[in-house]
Design a protein around this nucleic acid. Structure first.
Lengths: 206, 206
DNA sequence: CACAAACTAAACCAACCAGTTTAGTTTGTG
DNA sequence: CACAAACTAAACTGGTTGGTTTAGTTTGTG
């Protein structure tokens, strides 16, 4: 079912996907030529078309592979053992920020936004495999914090969404559009602000 | 200096910019052909190249015009007369959300992200004329609320950034990548959640 | 009416691109 | 060694693109 798994030269496939990803993230979908992908993958164009039905199919394969990777990456979002809400939120925030600002996640994010209009299914697949599942995991964490009386809120999903969104402020935006960083909105400052606000907004009743 | 202002047929120019904007926002920069822009503007291709040096120049002109429009749009961000923090924050949030979700702002946002790598100066120009100035205006509003003892926070810019960012959550993201809306994260719910959290996080000391 | 600026349609150019085909080479396996 | 699957380089097709040019038309003004 899953594909009989071709011999060792499935390394070619990886090379193609890697090269294509780099090309697409650098230049966008339309501006990337299959010839260039072939060259950078050290592979002939015919081989690309032997593995993928079309340029579109190749693009889809990249997004799907990314979705699988994301699933793994999520497991690193474990929460540290602590009874201090600030410690836990800060640790989560650090991991999230590192994830958001990583070149791969950032690059895929940019291209999904750019291509969402022409590849709606891919955008949906990516969003559900990545951001949505990530938030679901965070919901578990937040529910646990609530159960332990460290935080309080009415709606877990909305609390998580607000917390995550606060991390995606000025700092995130500047990186996304290649602007130089603003020291007043450094990664550290962003995390600290978000955690401070969350601690107040989600403070348990006394 | 400013350009001697061509005769009435600068209406052509507007038509070209309008058509180009629609094309670029629909299909992205690379997938839009100058011929198509010409057709949709009801103009010959030669006329386009008489007004703009290149496709790139045309693209730049659109972003710049958008920056001017944004400057105007900001003045509509006046705050209502009220001594209730919730009322004021809710009113601001409504205006911001309407702005963020409007097709033009959304479209420009998408394309700036997509083209930031190849047009860094434009991304900078747009960001400073739009989001940055918008936040500066909000800082004035927030400072005023603090002065009146309705809210409290240490750093105005960070408070504003956090508030604005909370509005750009799940709801905003779904629109951005053309996903169907999730009723649990409706515009109204997003605003209510953000305002509730802000009121707690920015509550004045008793 | 005359004149110049701005416009038009259409042909044109050189470059590029997705995708195919051909003819030949590598490579692992029995 | 033999055989088949996977690969390669390179040429080729049909189509598109940014940009230019040409030759002719509209338009407003004195």
């Amino acid at each position: 079912m899953e594909k009989p798994l071709s011999p060792r030269s499935a390394a070619k496939r990886t090379a193609m996907l890697d090269a294509a990803q780099r090309c697409f993230l650098e230049s966008g979908y339309a501006s990337t030529s299959v010839d260039e992908v072939a060259t950078r993958a050290g592979v002939s164009k015919a081989t690309i078309y032997a593995h993928f039905a079309s340029k579109d199919d190749l693009f889809g394969a990249i997004i799907c592979r990314r979705c699988d990777d994301q699933a793994e990456g999520l497991s690193s979002l474990s929460l540290p053992v602590s009874s201090d809400a600030r410690t836990i939120l800060t640790a989560i925030a650090h991991r999230l920020m590192a994830l958001f600002l990583s070149p791969e996640v950032m690059g895929i994010y940019r291209i999904v936004i750019a291509e969402a209009a022409r590849h709606p299914e891919l955008a949906k697949t990516w969003y559900e495999a990545g951001p949505l599942r990530g938030k679901q995991r965070l919901c578990d964490v937040f529910d646990d914090l609530k159960r332990r009386g460290l935080l309080d809120f009415d709606d877990t999903r909305r609390a998580v969404d607000a917390f995550v969104s606060m991390l995606r402020g000025e700092c995130f935006h500047r990186v996304m559009i290649n602007l130089p960083p603003n020291p007043h909105f450094s990664t550290e400052a962003t995390i600290e602000t978000a955690v401070n606000f969350a601690l107040k907004a989600f403070a348990p009743k006394v």
